[in-house]
């Protein structure tokens, strides 16, 4: 089954061999941003998760950063 890796430090994700990579916000809050309002933050998170779903739907032949 395909796996998408959502991580902030893309070079590590590449080094360890993830095939589908979504760059995220920051280490303590990959899928959030505490400086935003709760509604804006959720919108940001939704955008990232939608991107992850797109990556899961895509065929890739090598390590790909979406």
């Amino acid at each position: 089954m395909p796996v998408v890796h959502m991580a902030s430090i893309v070079p590590i994700s590449q080094s360890v061999g993830a095939n589908r990579i979504i760059p995220t916000v920051a280490i303590p809050y990959p899928l959030g941003n505490p400086t935003l309002s709760p509604a804006e933050e959720k919108k940001l998170r939704r955008g990232l998760v939608e991107k992850a779903l797109k990556a899961l739907g895509a065929d890739v032949t090598e390590q790909t950063v979406f």
Binding site: M1, V3, V4, H5, A7, S8, T24, P30, A52
Partner: peptide
């Protein structure tokens, strides 16, 4: 386990 539970895809998050 996920395979046995018929999961089709995984979102793995890292900090």
């Amino acid at each position: 386990k996920l395979k046995e539970a018929n999961v089709q895809a995984v979102i793995l998050t890292s900090t």
